[in-house]
Design a protein around this nucleic acid. Structure first.
Lengths: 340, 340
DNA sequence: TTGTAAGCGTTATCAG
DNA sequence: CTGATAACGCTTACAA
């Protein structure tokens, strides 16, 4: 099945064809000919025969004997989420160019699917596992004790000894919120957030509070709204906000793009988008999309640095595979101001 | 390295612990106890010991001896592209739930990266390879002759014997274009497309032409504009279109979301979005995004059925792995009308 | 009902 | 400079 059409050729085949032993072929093909002082002639013959026959080493045999698979697992919530897709893509390229295979799975935010995906990867003897956990407890992730591990974007509270790479959500949100308050002399600022048990949600809310404080605007309890991250929730929170207050607020910070979509759909359906154009309502969101540059109103956004996240992740991978310790990385985000 | 903390336990370990042979353990753990009439008692003992020690079979050893890896490769241009991400995600779940491992790589539309990714997957002895090829010639894809293969979204012209799964772009575009012409009594319709050598581009353009014909609107040569699929190109084509005509046309079909972003950015920067709201300009695009429901103007779109694409892909995978032939699948798309 | 042994393709060790 | 041989963990004839 590995090869249906004509049986794949092995080290042994090459050895027989070249009239030397497996050992010799192995040395040559692994670039260790010098080390073992293989005759130039033998070297050439082996190389050319291997080439002719499209010899490809069997990594399964290699892994078996080396007790190392050079494979690492990545379990993210969803790769149709642009941010995760971006990070995965860059990381995959980095890995591939360095002889590592990245295997990506989706949890779909469902603990059960996540568990299956992890179990599956463990069966494949991965050398290291990167997760964006959906659960808050270390108990759900037994691999943390037995396998080199990294956390991406989210950190399990009782597992902060497992190194992580995250965005500095808090600073970015604080800076954006205080900036907007000052620029527009706001006396009011609402916040729509996602699942509070996730560390980024917490950091964003914390950032929001800091932002108010920095700008000297006292927080009011009914400014803060929380549900999950689905667009539907953005719609509902917006609806409730309006019902309660009887009018649109001066400004809203939306904690994710998913929520923003819901908010905009609500505003659109209720003919309120013009409040944005006329700057009666100021909007900012976490995460940045190109389409935000194409709208007839201005929405500030916070752009995560996926390139750097992937790079740091990769650096940590190399460290861990090398049995060196790896430090936590907190990557700054970039503010995209659009409300000139 | 496979396991840093405490050596992973093997079939042998379980055998010794249970006081039986590897063979017996293997049979029991593979659910073939009945077949070999293993004593219930022995069965129980083995099962419980394996459980206690979290025994996980080494798939590398298994693959080596079975000559089959149960792994399939998928090389797509970019998984930060929503459509591909969606399809991959569904396909990955399907595979995982059926004992297959899907390994996803990105070509980034670059033949060189694509070649590397494919070579890499071949080294991993994948049982089957799915590609969305960046090149037009069979010669660039030698694996097509040696490995069960599938094509997704794009078809290599001289390799149409390799089964494929694609969207019925042509019918969808034709229906949308003719529909808009009739609904709005259009006497003019421009088309902005991407790289013509790709089969979907060709199909979309073909669909556009059919749509005009169906609606009885004679095509004019300068209605058709082509570059690549980047947003930047949408911007530039829009700019040129305006320069040539000196005014906005009545309607434009944009062949991808990427291009649409460029078009919208151009319109926004030139304060022309109001032409959309006032229905002086009608816009339609290939691919559908939730944000299109959140805009103060209506853009028709064509939604590909990623669920069905993934399902058909999976069905074809099973067929091929089973050495059965696999048919080509052309999946209908859904029209999202917004211009009521 | 269970055990023995060979073999999958590789690399490392050690001996020539 | 090169070759035997064992070992990695698993399955499967074949034996008992």
């Amino acid at each position: 099945m590995m090869n249906l059409k004509h049986k794949r050729c092995t080290l042994n085949d090459i050895a027989e064809l070249s009239g030397v032993s497996k050992t010799t072929v192995s040395m040559v093909l692994n670039g260790r000919a010098d080390e073992f002082r293989i005759k130039a002639e033998t070297r050439q013959k082996i190389l050319s025969i291997a080439q002719q026959h499209h010899y490809r080493a069997n990594i399964y045999a290699k892994a078996l004997q080396a007790q190392r698979t050079n494979t690492i697992g990545l379990v993210i919530p969803d790769f149709s989420n642009f941010g995760f897709a971006q990070t995965s893509k860059i990381l995959e390229r980095l890995c591939r160019n360095n002889g590592l295979q990245l295997i990506i799975s989706c949890s779909d935010e469902q603990p059960q699917q996540e568990a299956k995906a992890i179990e599956n990867l463990l069966e494949r003897q991965i050398d290291l596992l990167i997760t964006t956990p959906t659960q808050q407890s270390k108990r759900c992730y037994p691999h943390l004790d037995t396998l080199p591990s990294l956390q991406l974007d989210r950190v399990i509270k009782d597992a902060d000894h497992v190194p992580y790479v995250i965005t500095d959500d808090q600073s970015a949100v604080a800076e954006m919120v205080s900036g907007m308050i000052e620029k527009h002399q706001l006396s009011e600022f609402h916040y729509l957030g996602g699942l509070l048990q996730l560390t980024p949600s917490e950091a964003r809310l914390q950032g929001f509070k800091c932002g108010l404080q920095q700008a000297g605007l006292p927080l009011q309890a009914d400014w803060i709204h929380h549900r999950d991250y689905r667009a539907e929730s953005g719609y509902i929170m917006m609806q409730q906000l309006l019902q309660h207050a009887g009018r649109l607020p001066q400004a809203i910070f939306v904690a994710s793009y998913g929520l923003l979509v819901g908010v905009l759909r609500f505003l659109n359906e209720h003919q309120l988008l013009n409040q944005l154009s006329s700057r009666q309502l100021h909007l900012a969101t976490f995460d940045d999309y190109e389409l935000l540059n194409c709208l007839p109103f201005n929405i500030n956004s916070i752009r995560q640095n996926h390139e750097q996240i992937a790079n740091q992740l990769f650096a940590s991978i190399l460290n861990l595979l090398d049995k060196k310790p790896s430090e936590n990385k907190i990557i700054p985000a970039e503010l995209c101001w659009r409300d000139q």
